[in-house]
Amino acid sequence: MGKLKKLVALGALGAIVTAVAKKLQGGGNDSPWQSAPEPTTPTTPTTPTPPTPPTPPAPTEAPDELLVDNAPEPIDEPDQVPPPPAPADERPDPLTDPLPEEPRD
């Protein structure tokens, strides 16, 4: 009968330890259902207004020596016109055309 007493005492001790651990973890609610969190009223976040950038100074006239015209000169003569590019079917395609074979000696 001594073994039965030890078994009962060990079971009771385990139940006490389990109950204390549950209380310390905040699980004091004996209901098997989880409680829903309290709904909070949503607050609208206030967005800070971005600072206004400073206004740039008014543009001033540039001297004539600083003005540069990069536009090409107009072509007046027909011999100055570059030839049109070759049609697409006449140009070699480096991806699909075979490599030229080297002459063998």
Rank of each mutant, 00 (worst) to 15 (best):
residue 56 P to L: 02
residue 50 P to A: 08
residue 4 L to S: 08
residue 60 T to A: 09
residue 34 Q to D: 07
residue 20 V to E: 02
residue 54 P to T: 14
residue 80 Q to M: 10
residue 55 T to S: 05
residue 105 D to T: 12
residue 100 P to Y: 01
residue 72 P to H: 01
residue 52 T to G: 00
residue 28 G to H: 07
residue 102 E to P: 02
residue 43 T to V: 15
residue 58 A to N: 09
residue 60 T to R: 06
residue 98 P to R: 03
residue 69 D to A: 04
residue 62 A to N: 10
residue 80 Q to E: 09
residue 99 L to H: 00
residue 70 N to G: 04
residue 67 L to D: 11
residue 46 T to N: 03
residue 23 K to H: 12
residue 100 P to E: 03
residue 27 G to W: 04
residue 100 P to N: 02
residue 46 T to C: 01
residue 13 L to M: 14
residue 76 D to N: 11
residue 75 I to M: 12
residue 90 E to L: 08
residue 92 P to E: 03
residue 39 P to D: 07
residue 44 T to V: 15
residue 74 P to N: 02
residue 83 P to K: 05
residue 105 D to R: 13
residue 22 K to Y: 04
residue 6 K to Y: 12
residue 91 R to G: 00
residue 19 A to M: 09
residue 15 A to Y: 12
residue 15 A to T: 15
residue 4 L to T: 10
residue 76 D to M: 07
residue 101 E to K: 04
residue 59 P to A: 07
residue 76 D to W: 05
residue 47 T to S: 02
residue 20 V to P: 01
residue 96 T to R: 07
residue 31 S to Q: 02
residue 101 E to G: 08
residue 23 K to W: 12
residue 86 A to T: 07
residue 22 K to Q: 10
residue 32 P to I: 13
residue 17 V to D: 03
residue 61 E to S: 11
residue 70 N to W: 06
residue 26 G to H: 05
residue 78 P to M: 06
residue 35 S to G: 05
residue 16 I to P: 00
residue 6 K to I: 15
residue 84 P to D: 05
residue 7 L to F: 10
residue 1 M to F: 11
residue 23 K to S: 12
residue 62 A to S: 13
residue 84 P to L: 10
residue 3 K to L: 14
residue 78 P to Q: 04
residue 17 V to S: 11
residue 6 K to C: 12
residue 14 G to L: 15
residue 32 P to W: 09
residue 13 L to H: 06
residue 3 K to A: 12
residue 94 P to Q: 04
residue 8 V to M: 10
residue 18 T to P: 00
residue 99 L to V: 08
residue 28 G to K: 05
residue 88 A to H: 00
residue 7 L to S: 10
residue 29 N to C: 09
residue 38 E to T: 15
residue 57 P to V: 04
residue 104 R to Y: 07
residue 49 T to Q: 06
residue 9 A to Y: 10
residue 28 G to S: 13
residue 86 A to K: 06
residue 21 A to H: 03
residue 16 I to V: 15
residue 86 A to P: 03
residue 79 D to E: 11
residue 51 P to R: 01
